[in-house]
Design a protein around this nucleic acid. Structure first.
Lengths: 145, 145
DNA sequence: ATGGATGCAAAGTGTTTGCAGCCAG
DNA sequence: CTGGCTGCAAACACTTTGCATCCAT
């Protein structure tokens, strides 16, 4: 917790209880919550928290590269505390969003950089499909049928 | 134009003048228009066209895999007539969206498929950065300074 | 003939903004 | 002290929906 405040300070962001709480939620979960999710998660501990503050804070975190906004085609954006940019996999069956840590992206990017005359600053990569768990569940169902 | 109607019919979509016009715009441009862009483009030729129809049609095209919705983090979605799924490159300077046709994605996907136990059905890949033209413009400015 | 498509207006949803009061630095 | 942050409500922008009418098949 201490260290989170340090990170914020290092980015020259004022450390308020709200900010810390929002950043903490984002930092400690891997569930890629929406602004609303974060707001709901904090209502009990921070009864005065406002959704606008969540949005404003997420915006500040984004601008300081402490968070990434995911646009997976859903109605609302989901967020991820950025440690290092990475692709995401969305299960079309259960809706789960999974972080993908792989080095293969690097090669792909290098190829693209070479092929085109486009300077890549950042990227967003989403894979849609079926996750391991849902796959085995489907197998189970087949057997039971 | 004839063939566009055929494509729609093949997907069992009723061929109405509105649909044809919307699909034509999408099919013949590479500018990745928003729903509003398409609506504006067609107002003159189709004065009764409604924005709701554009949205409904885009939805129908999407469901039939004739169009793709791009979520590049902008306020509004942009659309692309799907010939074949491909990555997009967004210039952060001029806002242009460029189609990227490369085979390197295939290798990347195969690697990921092997590394994880996730069945990939589709993907969305966006690269953000500076396009060739904006790059040379920046060079020009440097020289002129 | 008839089920789906159109088009208008109204409603909905996620997000942003204005502003007064507040608090971290 | 002071500029930035909070929180409320109102405003916004994009998208969806309801429904009567229309038209492609």
């Amino acid at each position: 917790m201490e260290q989170l405040a340090e990170i914020l300070k290092a980015k020259k962001l004022k450390v308020t209880p709200q900010r810390l709480a929002i950043y903490k939620v984002l930092y400690e979960t891997s569930s890629h919550p929406t602004a609303e999710d974060i707001y709901t998660a904090l209502r009990q501990s921070h009864p005065t928290m406002s959704l606008a503050t969540v949005y404003k804070t997420l915006d500040a975190l984004k601008k300081s590269d402490l968070a990434t906004e995911l646009n997976i085609g859903d109605d609302s954006s989901r967020y991820d505390a950025t440690i290092k940019s990475h692709p995401h996999m969305i299960c079309l069956n259960c809706g789960k969003v999974i972080d993908l840590h792989t080095d293969s992206l690097k090669d792909f990017k290098e190829n693209v950089q070479k092929e085109t005359d486009f300077d890549i600053v950042s990227e967003k990569v989403y894979f849609y499909g079926t996750c391991k768990e849902c796959k085995s569940k489907k197998e189970q169902n087949k057997i039971n049928d």
